[in-house]
């Protein structure tokens, strides 16, 4: 990953803050990086249809669940997250379509999408904060660049996509 492609923003404070909010964390050692600086990559500039207001400014939001026919048809067909219980506005903010909405009602930027994801996926949140889950690159004893949840998972279909593997080991040749 080239540093030029990604502008990385520090979220140390946010991470530490989030840890104290989780109710089952009380007994655990607080997440307090001492010698390390953790940067979670921002992603909004990577999204092809961002800002959403470039279209949604003109339209009135319809919060009811329905089949999407035109622009978001593939999104609708591919939506495999939270079974039938999920609809756009579980995550996207109805009041400000360029934002995401936490369960508490707090609006957050797409750059902080991981905060929204981890509000449901508590187990992953703990592992993510400890660096056990997710891709962390950089320095093991210094600056760490941590990929956001949506950097690896498609939030509308979070299961990992299949990949083309690299070539198998060179066969042993008889001479």
């Amino acid at each position: 990953m080239s540093a030029g492609r990604l502008v990385l923003v520090a979220f140390v404070a946010a991470l530490a803050c989030e840890a104290t909010h989780a109710p089952d964390q009380a007994a655990e050692r607080p997440f307090a990086p001492t010698h390390e600086e953790i940067l979670v990559e921002p992603r909004s500039h990577l999204l092809p249809t961002y800002p959403c207001t470039s279209c949604h400014d003109e339209r009135e939001a319809q919060p009811t669940r329905r089949r999407l026919a035109d622009y978001h048809r593939t999104r609708y067909d591919d939506l495999k997250h939270g079974d039938d219980a999920f609809w756009c506005y579980q995550c996207h903010a109805l009041e400000d379509i360029d934002k995401l909405r936490m369960a508490s009602g707090q609006l957050i930027s797409f750059d902080e999408a991981w905060r929204l994801c981890t509000s449901c996926h508590g187990d992953k949140q703990r592992d993510f904060q400890r660096g056990i889950h997710g891709l962390t690159i950089g320095e093991w004893n210094g600056k760490k660049h941590r990929r956001s949840c949506t950097g690896c998972h498609d939030p509308h279909n979070p299961r990992f996509r299949s990949m083309t593997p690299e070539k198998p080991p060179a066969p042993v040749q008889s001479r």
Partner: peptide
């Protein structure tokens, strides 16, 4: 690793992954 499966660090450091 595209799936982030690998972790590495100093086992003597309490805060290492």
């Amino acid at each position: 690793c595209p799936t982030g499966a690998r972790k590495f660090g100093n086992i003597n450091d309490e805060n290492s992954e």
